[in-house]
Amino acid sequence: MQPPMYVSPQQQMEDRADFARAGIRRGQPVVFASTTQGIVSLTHNASQSLFKLSEIYDRISWGAVGRYNEFEALRQAGIRYTDTRGYAYERSDVTARGLANMYARTLGELFISGTKPFEVEIAVAEVAAAPEDDRLYQITFDGTLLEHHGLLVLGGNAQDLHHQLQEALPPTARELDATVSIIREQLGTTGSHVELAILDRDPQALRGSHRAFRRLDPQTF
């Protein structure tokens, strides 16, 4: 019997990373940006019912690129995690940081010991009372957890797009309408094939609800 071919651990990790990156690169980018009205998130999406942006908890939203079945499983895990924490402790004890750590742990473990790494990248956003206190986390396929300030881009060609958006968007005091149209311009998305959502900064005052997440109609912009 022939012994299995030796592959060094470094090579194994590199192969896995290349495999995951290739899957993610194909995905349409997802953009999160802080504005004075709240955190807006936007992506190209041809479907009206299969979403890439979602509500997770009162002040926390979520976005993903990659394979649908894999990130949908992570979205559901996130909702179970936050609902359980909020029920066991208090609603205000649920934070994006805790959720992002859970995702980082899960993706990190899957990257090392799963039969194949997840081909996904996840964003977690938490809206605060002021834009400078907003939290934006990115979790990559290998469990790396990154924090961003004011702007977060996931998916294909993210670095270039991040750079372009940083140039095009004002650094502070961004208005919702202007921010959405600048992002759409840079992404080159037209028509109704856009998924658009916002985490309102003060949902209690706006519509008497503790839930900040709201889907917006892209046609109105």
Binding site: S49, F51, S54, E55, I56, Q76, I79, R80, D83, G86, Y87, R211
Partner: peptide
């Protein structure tokens, strides 16, 4: 009542 409210919101978020 508290558990029921979480139950409804949980369903709504998972199922859209």
């Amino acid at each position: 009542a508290r558990l029921f409210a979480v139950e409804l919101e949980h369903y709504e978020k998972l199922e859209g």
